[in-house]
């Protein structure tokens, strides 16, 4: 049996490519003028045209939250945003929240609570948490869990993310008990003995 399958060209007409134009984006308080066509996402504009690679691409389709940035203080998925329509808005990325030498309270809390492992979802988690704090709607653990659910973490650092966000959200007044760590020292051994 032999069938044919043809991956058809999606555009039957002669392909044409819209030329790049100067687009100015205000990122972390600075204007950046780049040459892009309308088809460039805000995410790719940051990563490929401005070398702001702290914002991550985890799916490129709004399904993971790794690309979360703040626009006028609100969290959005930069992968689904066309950069050109974000001119004139204040865009804030992870690089704008704090630096390695001068971490923001959220960034420090993420380090202290070990709220990440591979680190790839982390900038998105932190921008999302900053957006959550800016929104001022969530206080309880259940609320924070739900409102941090737009950011996947494949390493499974969720309980520590919750602890970090709750700490900053409540200025350190709330300590979340989402699981303790117990170390049973060697000295207490009962095992390795005769049955």
């Amino acid at each position: 049996m032999s069938l044919q399958f043809i991956q058809e060209p999606l555009d039957k007409a002669t392909p044409h490519v819209v030329p790049a134009q100067a687009v100015t984006l205000n990122v972390n308080g600075e204007d950046h003028t780049i040459q892009i066509a309308p088809w460039t996402s805000l995410l790719d504009a940051l990563r490929e045209y401005m070398d702001l690679t702290g914002t991550k691409k985890g799916c490129d389709h709004g399904q993971c939250g790794a690309c979360t940035v703040l626009v006028d203080g609100k969290r959005i998925n930069s992968c689904l945003a066309l950069a050109t329509v974000y001119q004139g808005k204040k865009i804030q990325t992870i690089e704008g929240l704090g630096t390695e030498e001068n971490l923001s309270p959220l960034q420090q809390a993420f380090v202290d609570h070990d709220a990440f492992q591979c680190g790839y979802c982390t900038p998105g988690q932190i921008c999302s948490a900053q957006g959550l704090i800016n929104e001022g709607r969530c206080k309880t653990e259940d609320e924070v869990r739900e409102h941090m659910s737009g950011n996947l973490c494949r390493c499974g650092a969720y309980t520590n993310i919750l602890s970090a966000v709750m700490e900053v959200l409540h200025d350190g007044d709330v300590v979340v008990d989402n699981g303790v760590l117990i170390t049973v020292p060697v000295a207490s051994t009962k095992a390795s003995s005769v049955e």
């Binding site: 709004g62 939250g65 609100k74 969290r75 959005i76 945003a81 999302s128 957006g131 929104e135 737009g150």
Partner: peptide, 9 residues
């Protein structure tokens, strides 16, 4: 529905 990020846009 969706997520805070998506609902914001």
């Amino acid at each position: 529905g969706a997520t805070p990020q998506l609902r914001n846009v």
